[in-house]
Design a protein around this nucleic acid. Structure first.
Lengths: 199, 199
DNA sequence: GTCTATACCAGGATAGAC
DNA sequence: GTCTATCCTGGTATAGAC
């Protein structure tokens, strides 16, 4: 592989420009120029701008699905809920830029890659429904959505609170989400995981 | 005014198409066709697509500013915090479609109408800083952002939980935001508004 | 003052030469 | 695997009809 092969470089430039400027705001010419090829050459490697976007977003969706699968496999106990929140938050933090794209560019992505978007919606629906617990009231369901939304703050936080250290962010958001769900404060280790059900 | 004047009809069609399809995804031709005029005619009434977007978004920003101003004018007591959350939530609900546009189309709007966007950022910064209270810790600041984000659920809720009645949504979200901020459960009337400070 | 016709340029996409 | 040339659509600008 004498080249840092063009295909890979295109993807790298795309992820950078998409996440800094947005998807619609980034032209193929811009990407091509930065890579040092022509627009037409991009089309040799990726059949469309859409596919390029997919190549950027797919890894996040894959991991996110694993996180939701993992949560669903567990019984809905307070300790498990805490663990699931943590796992989801970490997944988001790991793919921070792709997540930000998803959030900032919702309309464009929705219009562009509908199937991927649909999967993401379905995944968050499953997560929310697990978080709401068995036979949930409307309030339980609302709280579940509110809790996941709370974790989403991790993504806007870089812009709003650049000086806050990541571990404190992580800890506080987890506590906030737990508070929304009516869980009491965390113990150091997840003990008595089978006691009373959450409010 | 024999006509439901063209200018107004353009704006009405724009708000509808922008909010259902997104800003970038809506072409001027589409709007013009729906109104029954040509693209060029749009330009007589609005100097650019941007201006049309501004005309749609401006009312929300105006009211939002009033809500933040009102909050800042009050001392940071638990009762006042509750009242501010409520007021902000209601503002969002009143301008639900414009809010949704702002959230779904962030990247496009950011790129298109930077000054408006900047004002919105500044307003939410002010609101968050008021919510965090005087001399806040990092955790207080994070919680403030998490609480406002919680209210934002009102906007996604229509899609995720279409069957939940609005008043229950409103009540539960306010309680969730209060839980994030560490306020205890609401009394029917805001009594003893000057007692202990929130965690 | 309100609108149409028309032309311009940028961006996504395709065909075909090298 | 990369380029040139070309097409179509969308935002924009202007001249001019009514």
């Amino acid at each position: 592989m004498e080249v840092a092969d063009t295909r890979t470089r295109i993807r790298a430039v795309a992820i950078e420009l998409f996440t800094t400027q947005g998807y619609e705001q980034t032209s193929l010419r811009e990407i091509a120029d930065r890579v040092g090829v022509t627009k037409a050459s991009l089309y040799y490697h990726y059949p469309s701008k859409q596919e390029l976007l997919l190549a950027v977003l797919r890894p996040l969706v894959v991991e996110w699905r694993q996180a939701v699968d993992a949560a669903e496999a567990l019984p809905h106990t307070p300790a498990n809920v805490r663990w699931a929140l943590e796992n989801c938050l970490d997944t988001m933090l790991r793919h921070r830029s792709a997540c930000a794209l998803f959030i900032r560019d919702t309309a464009a992505i929705l219009a562009t890659v509908q199937p991927l978007w649909a999967e993401l919606l379905e995944l968050s629906a499953r997560l929310n429904s697990w978080l709401a617990g068995p036979s949930p009231t409307s309030a339980d369901r609302i709280r579940a959505v509110a809790a996941t939304e709370t974790l989403g703050v991790a993504l806007t936080s870089t812009a709003l609170m650049p000086d806050v250290p990541e571990d404190e962010l992580r800890r506080t958001l987890l506590e906030s989400a737990a508070a929304v769900l009516g869980l009491r404060r965390a113990r150091t280790r997840p003990v008595d995981a089978r006691a009373a059900k959450p409010a």
